[in-house]
């Protein structure tokens, strides 16, 4: 019985998240469109509201082209690795008090592990396509993941130290005691590092080097088409939502808000995640792209030292306050 309920919950979460992903693409196109003095999708449905569904149907029925020289098993597995790991990361996210599928004690670590695994999908896609651009894209992705996983992990160490837990629900609960009941202010350096690292982690502008369309055509997804392409797309957007959720949980106080909303506890959580996603999209419309070596320099020379400094300061703070 319990398993059945759990399965039902999983199905519900999946349905909601995938619907969100579909409409996240719509919002991205719409918001960027308006920032760029154009309308965005307008044709399918009222103001293009059915566009994501049309896109979904289209990519579902498109021919699935596999290059002759590709490493077939890896080529087929790569998008699935990407998507599944990202979906698995959703399991530990607490959307509200008790609204969590798996309330495990190492939630934060689990999410890191999953988002690192997702990059395997990208690297394998780059390798298995056996094309020059995808290979370069995969290579860039590899370097980028290694360089940005570290500052991202380090930036959250401060949060772990303050809250004394890796359990995401407990991190949210622990923030009740800090200023405005969020960790943003005591962890401002950590947040800064986290914010930049999260853009890089999700391959978003200005760090979208693995798929830089003007340099590498489409990077690691150059050879993909149809539904497999869409899987990568979905993985990227779920990744964005997961990372935005971590930001919300670790720095913005999770589901806590100025006042409680009856009947729908995750209201503030969702609002904050939307805020993050809007910033993602806003940045995409504004900034140019970094060069590969500049990206590495930024990661290793600026973010990691800053994150280490943040850990030191947090430790100092903790000792002094005690």
């Amino acid at each position: 019985m319990q398993i059945l309920i759990l399965l039902l919950q999983i199905a519900m979460l999946l349905a909601i998240v995938l619907l969100h992903v579909a409409y996240l693409t719509y919002f991205e196109r719409k918001i960027i469109g308006h920032m760029q003095v154009r309308m965005g999708p307008m044709r399918v449905g009222w103001h293009g509201l059915l566009q994501p569904i049309a896109d979904g149907i289209k990519s579902f029925f498109k021919e699935d082209i596999i290059p002759q020289q590709a490493d077939k098993p890896l080529f087929l597995a790569a998008p699935i690795i990407c998507l599944v790991t990202m979906l698995a990361a959703l399991a530990v996210l607490p959307f509200a008090e008790g609204w969590v599928l798996a309330d495990i004690n190492i939630g934060l670590l689990f999410i890191f592990a999953m988002s690192s695994l997702a990059s395997y999908g990208i690297i394998l896609a780059g390798w298995a396509s056996n094309s020059k651009y995808t290979f370069l894209g995969g290579m860039r992705s590899m370097a980028q993941v290694i360089s940005y996983e570290i500052p991202m992990g380090l930036s959250l160490v401060g949060v772990m130290m303050l809250s004394g837990s890796l359990n995401l629900s407990e991190i949210v609960a622990a923030q009740g005691t800090s200023i405005f009941s969020i960790y943003l202010f005591p962890q401002i350096i950590g947040f800064f590092v986290f914010f930049i690292a999260m853009l890089a982690e999700t391959n978003r502008v200005p760090f979208d080097l693995p798929e830089a369309e003007t340099e590498l055509v489409s990077g690691y997804i150059t050879e993909y088409s149809g539904m497999r392409y869409a899987l990568f797309f979905m993985a990227e957007y779920i990744g964005m939502m997961v990372i935005a959720s971590i930001g919300t949980i670790c720095f913005l106080g999770g589901w806590n808000g100025p006042f409680a909303i009856p009947f729908f506890p995750p209201f503030w959580f969702i609002l904050k995640v939307y805020g993050f996603l809007f910033v993602f999209i806003w940045i995409r419309a504004t900034l140019p792209r970094y060069r590969y070596d500049q990206l590495m320099a930024l990661g290793w020379k600026l973010l990691i030292p800053l994150a280490l400094l943040n850990i030191f300061l947090t430790g100092l703070l903790k000792v002094l306050v005690r």
Binding site: V205, A212, T214, L287, P288, R289
Partner: peptide, 12 residues
């Protein structure tokens, strides 16, 4: 600008 990644300038 688009080559370097700044998309908005393109449409402006």
């Amino acid at each position: 600008a688009l080559d370097i990644g700044a998309m908005t300038v393109f449409l402006y």
